[in-house]
């Protein structure tokens, strides 16, 4: 990417900010942590844009996002699988049917709660695929793992989620 086509960090914030925020929110379940992560990513993008080599911009951006998230976990010793606040557990498995729960905010809470219980590697793969919308190749590039592993993690992650959500689908 040459200087003419290289975006500024403001461009990145405008174009990808919401995606990064949603990725972070689905991984952490915490709006404050998600906002912190967005700012950390934008800081790293601002510093890294000058050294950015031509290639997949989204792969580069999501690698930065993932590294920022993992660094934050390591720094804060804060695992996103920490227990949820009281009241978030009670309705797991309480929804009567998929169609009804799809329309309810409560369903997203259930799915979010189940996501947070997934081991990180599986959660990350599922979120990048189903929330962010990356392809398997893009996920492999962002996470630096083989595409076969990506495929396996996504599938196993979905299976684990399905097993956690006990209401009938």
């Amino acid at each position: 990417m040459d200087d003419i086509n290289r975006p500024t960090w403001e461009d990145v914030a405008h174009r990808y900010g919401r995606k990064i925020y949603n990725f972070a929110y689905r991984l952490t379940g915490n709006p404050d942590d998600a906002a912190d992560l967005v700012q950390e990513v934008l800081l790293r993008v601002r510093k890294g844009l000058e050294r950015y080599e031509p290639g997949s911009f989204e792969g580069w951006l999501w690698r930065i996002t993932r590294n920022a998230f993992l660094d934050d976990i390591r720094r804060e010793k804060r695992r996103p699988t920490s227990p949820l606040p009281e009241g978030d557990h009670g309705h797991l498995g309480s929804s009567p049917s998929p169609d009804e729960v799809l329309a309810a905010v409560r369903l997203s809470d259930d799915v979010q709660s189940a996501l947070l219980k997934l081991p990180y590697d599986f959660r990350e793969a599922v979120v990048l695929c189903d929330v962010v919308g990356l392809t398997y190749d893009e996920i492999a590039e962002a996470t630096d793992i083989p595409v076969g592993t990506v495929r396996s993690r996504i599938h196993r992650g979905r299976k684990m989620l399905r097993e956690m959500l006990t209401w009938p689908l």
Partner: peptide
């Protein structure tokens, strides 16, 4: 397939206004 639908149906979370 149903699990994927649920995940895709997760609402987009709007970041706080001051952020973006």
């Amino acid at each position: 397939r149903d699990m994927k639908r649920l995940l895709r149906a997760l609402p987009t979370v709007e970041p706080p206004g001051w952020l973006l």
